[in-house]
Every structure is written in structure tokens, then in C-alpha cells.
Computed example of a mutant assay.
Amino acid sequence: MKAGVIGTVDGNFDALESFETTVKQGDFELKRCIDVRRGFTLPSGIEAYYGHAAMEQVKDREQVMIQNGEISIYEEPQKVPSYTEFLTVPGEVVVVDSGAGSFAYSMIGSQTNTNIERAEINLSGFAADHEDDSDPWKVGFYGHLGNAENGVVHGTDLLSDDELSGVLHESNLNQLGVEYPYDGQMLKANMAESGYFEIYQPSNYESKDYLQFILDEVIHYLK
């Protein structure tokens, strides 16, 4: 994984183990499972884990019945599975592959006696701190007072553009794509205020490098 939605951990745990449990909801027995596939070490020597999470939920699904020349449409409760991949650095962050996978936060939190919540990234703070050493190629903004109330712009060195910089500096940012020097190479990253963070390039970036970058460069801007 080198993309996902970041959750922050309130509390601490040293390790994560696989587990499976069953809960009862009405007439349904629902399974929940954390499957830790492997542990690995980050370049800084910190332990991390990769795994899968899945849970069953009861949701009403539309059903169609054709009988005696008539069509009936109704809703019926059914078991529906949800699945996500995840990465975690114990006591620091849990990253799931999409917003739909955020159910894993509560599952891992329950198992480790911690509280894990989806993070927001302070993009304005990140952009301001790295204005001199990064090249923004995408900026999404909102809350601007003027003709340009919100939008997304693409280009190069956008925060220094004579026509756009005033609008972007006076707005809240909800998307930020940057080319950014880190550990002797140029990274191309994309992030969102909603907690999504992705490394586009280099293409051979591994999960351990992705997590290390979050710990080194992004975690200070999580809220």
C-alpha cells in the first residue's frame, strides 16, 4: 500500500494480533475479523503491520418479486460484508485503503483498548511550511470570499502564481498535490483534508517507505 485514509490513535499498543469474533444482531450472527498478514520494520527501526479487516453488517436490500403478473418491490435485511486492507504503526496511525474501510478503526481500537479516528490533514499548514522546497501541482480550495468561491486548479508552482496565489492563500485547502524532496529523491504526493494520502511517484515505493514518510512529514499536520 502507498495510498489510503489515515486514522490517528489515541492510546498506545505494542503489537497487533489476528482475531475473529461473532456478534449477534437480531436473527443474524455477524463475523468480524482482523487478519494480520505480516509484520515489518520501517527504515527508522519502528515495527509496523499489514493486514486485512472484514466485518458483516445487516443492511436493508431492495428485493423484487414477480408473481401472478404483478411486480412487488420491498426491502429485506441481509448480511453484507465489508473489507479493507490496512497498515498500522502501533500507537501512531492506522491507514485503510479507502474511506469505506474506516470500520477497521473501531475494530482495531476495540482489540487494542485505544480510540482510533479518521484524521484530517492541515493542508494549509503543510503548504505554508514547505512553500520554499515543494512544487504544488494541484490545489483544491473552498471558503474564499470573492468571485472564485471554490475549485481545483492544476499546474506548476501554483502558490506562487501571480493570478492565483492571492485566492489560494486566502482560502481553506481541501486538496494538495506536491512534488517534494525527501530522503534524497523527489516524491510526487497527493493529499486531501479528509485524511487521504497517496504517493504517486516513485512507483516502486513500498509500504514501509510510505509509513515512514507519514511519520516523518505528515503526522505533525494531522488533527
Score class of each variant (00 low, 15 high):
V23L: 12
V23W: 04
V23R: 15
Q25T: 14
Q25D: 14
Q25I: 13
G26C: 03
G26Q: 03
G26T: 04
D27I: 07
D27F: 10
F28N: 05
F28R: 06
E29F: 09
E29S: 12
K31S: 12
K31W: 04
K31C: 05
R32F: 03
I34C: 12
I34N: 02
D35A: 10
D35V: 04
D35E: 12
D35S: 13
V36C: 14
R37H: 09
R37K: 11
R37V: 12
R37I: 13
R38W: 08
R38I: 02
G39D: 11
G39F: 03
G39Q: 13
F40E: 01
F40P: 01
F40Y: 14
F40Q: 04
F40R: 05
T41W: 01
L42W: 03
P43H: 10
P43Q: 08
P43I: 10
P43V: 10
S44P: 00
G45T: 02
G45I: 02
G45Y: 02
I46H: 12
I46N: 10
I46C: 01
I46K: 15
I46Q: 15
I46R: 15
E47F: 04
E47L: 09
A48V: 09
Y49N: 08
Y50H: 13
Y50M: 15
Y50K: 15
G51F: 02
G51D: 02
G51R: 02
H52G: 01
A53N: 06
A53D: 07
A53H: 06
A54R: 14
A54G: 04
M55R: 14
M55P: 00
E56V: 03
Q57E: 07
Q57K: 07
Q57W: 00
V58N: 07
V58F: 08
D60H: 04
R61T: 07
R61I: 07
R61K: 15
E62I: 11
E62W: 03
E62A: 07
E62C: 03
Q63Y: 04
V64T: 08
I66Q: 06
Q67P: 00
Q67I: 03
I71N: 05
S72Y: 14
S72H: 11
